[in-house]
C-alpha cells in the first residue's frame, strides 16, 4: 500500500461531491468550469487535468456541467446521498435506489 500523507484540513463541505471526473476521459478543457452558473469549479493548475471542485455546497444540482461536456463519461453527476431517488418495479415490488 502506498503511503499517504495526512494533512490537517478543516471538515469537508457537505454535500461534497456533486460530480466526479474520470481523468482517463476528461481532457481538462474547462468547459464545465465556464458553464457552471455557481462557479463551483476552478481549473486545475495542471494543464489537461480535470477541474477542481472548490465550492461543492453551492451546487444547485442543475446538471449543466454534465450535459454540456462533449466527452461522454468525463464528468458524472452524483446526487447527494439524502437526495437519491427511489423507484419500484411495479410487477416484482422490488425497490431500487439510485447509486
Amino acid at each position: 500500500m502506498s503511503e499517504r500523507k495526512i494533512y490537517a484540513v478543516p471538515n469537508v463541505q457537505t454535500p461534497n461531491t456533486p460530480v466526479r471526473f474520470d481523468p482517463e476521459v476528461c481532457v481538462g478543457c474547462n468547459r464545465c468550469v465556464e458553464i457552471c452558473p455557481l462557479d463551483v469549479f476552478i481549473p486545475n493548475p495542471k494543464k489537461g487535468a480535470p477541474p477542481i471542485v472548490l465550492h461543492p455546497e453551492e451546487c444547485w444540482l442543475c446538471g449543466v456541467c454534465v450535459t454540456e461536456c462533449k466527452n461522454k463519461g468525463a464528468i458524472s453527476f452524483i446526487y447527494p446521498m439524502p437526495l437519491k431517488p427511489r423507484w419500484r418495479n411495479k410487477e416484482t415490488g422490488e425497490v431500487t435506489q439510485l447509486k
Binding site: 444540482l61 442543475c62 446538471g63 450535459t67 453527476f77 446526487y79 427511489r86 423507484w87 410487477e91
Partner: peptide, 24 residues
Amino acid sequence: ESTTKTMVNVMEEGGFDTSRDQIM
C-alpha cells in the same frame, strides 16, 4: 423542464424505465 434533465439522465443510466417502474 430544467434541473430535471439531469435527473432523467441519471435515473435512466441507473436502470429506471417508465414502462416498468414507479417513482417513490
